[in-house]
Amino acid sequence: MRHAKPIDEAKASELSELARSVRVDSMRMIQHAGSGSPGSTLSVTDVLVWLYFHEMHIDRADCRWNGRDRLVLSKGQASPAYYSIFAKLGWVSENELMGYRGFETRMQTHPEYNTIPAIDYTSGSLGMGLSAVNGMALAARYQGQNDLRFFCIMGDGETQEGQVWEAAMTAGHYKLSNVINVIDRNVFQGDRACADVMDQEPYAEKWQSFGWDVKVADGHSYEDLARVMATFDPAKPKLLIADTVKGKGVSFMEADNAWHTGGPKFDQAHLTQALQDLGAPT
């Protein structure tokens, strides 16, 4: 199986600049659409940037390269960041981004297989992504493709779906050591704090008891993500709990769950402020 890649200061700085740009795109897309999930998109942006621009084995010239590591964005509502990354990788056109949530667009609210070739799985119905990567990993094992890795990214609230635990059980049972599940622990979900809606903590003990190796990283630090990635038990499925801030990078959104969704309140003045916070021309 492929090993975690170490990261140096120059690379971290390059990723940081990419993430800043992805956040700018995301804010423009959501504000233009008049709705979307800004808080959840911003929290997971650094993890996505780290995976696509550093950790995962992909082929920029061929997004369907059979030897690629797979990624299922189970928390499909974070699609603006996903699409912005695709544009930077040359897999969709920059011009398409502002079509997000619009009519006759590939920038569907939730990622849809068969729209953009780079999408490995249809998501948006929460709780299915880990099952999908299990299926991919079992099929790869059957086909003798043992070097591939299968990443799933889910929200912390998403783990309230019972299917997530069926999938956790399966990966543990089959010791799917090439499955890496990332929980974007921004501690909020749609309505309120996850702990108030339906407490899922302690995550670590729960997943460990299902046969997983569990590590926690700062989800906004590339150095920490890379460092932790290298410490996983090679024989077990891996849970990377990424501690993140919902709304990361935009002052008025950070840790304010009112920005779980955008909506009419996300007006031009708010966009101007957000772009200013992100150091982008307004």
Binding site: M128, A132, G135, M136
Partner: peptide, 10 residues
């Protein structure tokens, strides 16, 4: 059932 979708992807 959702895993079947993943299997089919390969």
């Amino acid at each position: 059932m959702a895993a079947a979708g993943g299997v089919a992807d390969t």
